[in-house]
Simulated assay, not measured.
Amino acid sequence: MPKRILLAATLMVASPAFVIAETTAHLNDEAKILIKQFATSLKGELVSAIKAGGPSNAIAVCEDRAPAIANSLSESSDWTIGRTSLKTRNPDNAPDAWETKILKQFEGLKAAGNPVEPMSYAAVVEEDGQKQYRYMKAIPTQEVCLACHGKQLNPAVVEALEAAYPQDQATGYSAGDIRGAFTLSKPL
């Protein structure tokens, strides 16, 4: 088994996302594949829901299907997969201290003029005596997201959000903002 080392990861915004030791390089690839699967599945279901019944119909998809997709991918891999944000809609997705730090770094990079799409960060961290590989990928706010996350929301969307997420903080975004991040971890 290859020797694993504790890394001090470096945040980058250009491809490749950052340089890591060869012993964990394959984990970056695994994380990217899982994110693509999650994002593709979720986006497909959201688009279908919007076509079938408008933006308020998509709220149920985020409430029910997003956690189900994350759980399914987590169960079929050795990873824990989810989404988080500095402005959460679902309090179950609140960031931990490490995720908060990375999300704030992403925001700082965006404020400095860097594009959101390539932002990612990974590191080997030790938590409670267990080493974990942690990876985050920024989620840029797209035009379609604004129907439920934007500044001007349809009253039906507001009503559906208040019913599903009484503690919602995830509105007021503009296209190109950092909506949050995919967050993955894997024990080493």
Results as ranks from 00 to 15, higher is better:
Lys131Trp: 14
Lys43Ser: 12
Glu126Ser: 09
Leu109Tyr: 15
Glu143Gln: 15
Val116Pro: 03
Ser174Ala: 12
Pro155Ser: 06
Ser120Arg: 10
Thr84Gln: 04
Leu7Asp: 07
Thr24His: 09
Phe182Ser: 03
Pro166Ala: 05
Pro187Asn: 09
Ser185Asp: 07
Asp177Met: 02
Pro91Ala: 07
Ala49His: 06
Leu103Arg: 07
Gly53Glu: 08
Ala39Cys: 05
Lys104Pro: 00
Ala9Pro: 10
Met1Val: 13
Ser72Glu: 14
Asn114Tyr: 08
Lys36Val: 09
Asp168Val: 06
Val124Lys: 03
Ser185Arg: 14
Gln130Arg: 13
Arg134Ser: 04
Ala49Gly: 12
Met12Cys: 13
Ser15Arg: 14
Phe106Gln: 01
Leu34Ser: 06
Thr40Val: 05
Asp78Leu: 03
Leu6His: 08
Glu45Lys: 14
Ile35Asn: 02
Ala112Tyr: 04
Ala66Asp: 09
Glu126Leu: 02
Val125Ala: 04
Met119Trp: 07
Ala163Leu: 13
Glu99Thr: 08
Ala70Gly: 03
Ser72Gln: 14
Phe38Ser: 03
Lys137His: 11
Leu188Lys: 00
Thr23Asn: 10
Ile5Asn: 12
Leu153Cys: 11
Gly172Trp: 12
Cys148Thr: 09
Val124Arg: 03
Tyr121Arg: 08
Ala70Ser: 10
Val19Ala: 15
Pro166Met: 00
Lys110Leu: 02
Thr23His: 09
Gly129Ala: 07
Ala111Lys: 13
Ala21Met: 00
Val61Pro: 00
Glu22Asp: 15
Lys87Asp: 10
Glu127Tyr: 01
Thr84Tyr: 04
Arg89His: 04
Thr80Val: 13
Met1Ile: 12
Ala156Ile: 07
Thr80Arg: 13
Asp96Val: 08
Arg134Asp: 02
Glu143Asp: 14
Glu75Pro: 02
Ala122Tyr: 04
Ala163Asn: 11
Glu159Pro: 04
Leu42Ala: 12
Ala58Phe: 03
Leu46Tyr: 06
